[in-house]
């Protein structure tokens, strides 16, 4: 882990990930230092199976908290989004970010066959954080998130995509890349280091 100065022009990082997500996230999140000055909001698609949403999320949270220096919690309705925290989107609701930088949830039909949907999160996140937002699309077998990432770019945020060759399932990264010229396409192993350098101002 590397120490980090907090002079970042960015306030938040939204990560959209689907199939293969557990490994990909586990490659990135534990490498980020406790002092990481951004709020990180993770949206991991859930499978089709009927399950008890709460306990599934409890699993995700404790799984990551075990190995992460940053604190990991569920994104709860009305909670203020604070830097240095990793928030995990709950199952069965769409997660949105209000302009006041608090989370809200919405029970709506799936978008792009996904509930929660990455596009819904990215769209509201970029309306809130504008050019202070980083969007990242990782492995997955869905096209959800591609439009949302383009929206982030449209509001002058920074867009990142996992290099498809390094993805367990390359469909989602490829889909995101095909929709707009993303700022950086990065191999999975390099993403955490890239983020740390980025917020130190070593990268644009």
């Amino acid at each position: 882990m590397m120490p980090v100065k907090s002079s970042s022009p960015y306030q938040a990082l939204v990560i959209g990930v689907s199939a293969g997500g557990l490994n990909a996230l586990h490659n990135i999140l534990p490498k980020l230092p406790k002092s990481f000055p951004l709020a990180i909001i993770v949206l991991q698609h859930r499978g089709e199976v009927v399950f008890d949403g709460t306990s599934h999320n409890d699993f995700l949270i404790s799984y990551f908290q075990k190995d992460c220096a940053m604190s990991v919690t569920e994104a709860t309705i009305g909670a203020e989004i604070k830097p240095g925290n990793i928030y995990i989107a709950p199952a069965k609701y769409h997660l949105l970010i209000e302009k006041t930088k608090v989370f809200s949830l919405s029970l709506e039909p799936p978008v792009n066959f996904a509930l929660p949907s990455i596009d819904v999160l990215f769209d509201s996140a970029s309306a809130c954080y504008k050019n202070q937002l980083i969007g990242l699309i990782l492995t997955g077998a869905s096209s959800d998130g591609s439009t949302g990432l383009k929206t982030i770019k449209g509001r002058a945020g920074l867009t990142l995509v996992q290099e498809p060759k390094t993805a367990e399932v390359d469909f989602m990264p490829k889909s995101a890349i095909s929709l707009h010229t993303v700022d950086h396409i990065l191999p999975l192993d390099d993403i955490a280091e890239f983020l740390c350098q980025l917020i130190q101002g070593d990268k644009e």
Binding site: L96, E98, K99, S106
Partner: peptide, 9 residues
């Protein structure tokens, strides 16, 4: 109403 989802709808 919560603005983000209202705007969406």
């Amino acid at each position: 109403y919560a603005q983000a989802s209202l705007t969406r709808r």
